[in-house]
Design a protein around this nucleic acid. Structure first.
Lengths: 142, 142
DNA sequence: TCATATATTTAGAATAAGTCTAAGTTGAGA
DNA sequence: TCTCAACTTAGACTTATTCTAAATATATGA
């Protein structure tokens, strides 16, 4: 299966892993592939069950966690924290934001340019209850 | 002990709880009080040890969790999600953002108005590696 | 005040997400 | 083909949090 990465070129999960220096084992390929073709921001457990049922070979929970960490360290995927106690994963590693529907829990990507005029905006597509900007970086001394 | 809430009036933790319809038991008062006078965005465990050591009476872990959930539901405090696997708490319930120092883990509040021109900004006080806008709200149908 | 109902707190058991460990499997290169 | 390092695995372990059931405290009404 193929998927779009941040560039416009269509790449296979295998090619993507190779390009990031990750050995494309069958388990890693199938997990990366699943993340590339979904927009559902799944948890590790959701990855495990989705991939397991579409797969003949068994896949262990430990491998799912190992692989997600490997892919994250290699820059192939990103963590998304939206709710307490669970980590979600996103194969869209471009700079973007997230909109969480508080009723359904659905998470959709918001392109970075949409957020330039952060206050208003999204007005006709989304009912924004609130938003949280989370900065990562370094404090200067004192 | 007294603390500033979002208004300028100085209120005791007890007065704050009463105003939010939460019965001010000693345990709740001491926990709310601790949160009001710190800016460290502590986890439940950090609340437990900080409050326990400053307290003659024992305080159980379950009470800390119960109280944090009660205070959150009453709007006295907010959850802050910055890292996987841990929930932090903030008695500043005004609309504001957070800056996480990736070296030290220190979390500081960023006033909402600072974020109006989100891209540049913070330039001379902080080295911003990146930021994440997290929206909460509701999707319109389709 | 006393009795009773209700809310709160507690210790510890239970759960859930994630990590670790040690053994087994795989595959690339000599 | 053999070997070694990398990878995967099951299940034990850890950590954060919730649940349970009993004990305690508080409020209410006679």
């Amino acid at each position: 299966m193929t998927a779009h990465n941040t560039s416009d070129k269509i790449v296979t999960a295998e090619q993507l892993l190779l390009s990031r220096g990750v050995k494309p084992t069958p388990q890693r390929v199938v997990i990366a592939d699943y993340l590339l073709q979904t927009d559902s921001h799944p948890t590790a457990d959701e990855v495990l069950s989705a991939v397991s049922e579409a797969l003949p070979v068994a896949l262990s929970r430990a491998t799912v966690y190992n692989t997600l960490n490997t892919l994250k360290e290699a820059g192939v995927i990103k963590e998304v924290l939206t709710e307490p106690g669970r980590v979600r994963y996103d194969a869209n590693v471009s700079h973007h934001h997230h909109f969480v529907d508080v009723k359904t829990g659905k998470i959709v990507d918001i392109p970075a340019d949409k957020v330039e005029a952060i206050g208003e905006l999204l007005g006709d597509q989304y009912k924004v209850h609130g938003f949280q900007v989370l900065f990562y970086g370094e404090l200067e001394q004192h």
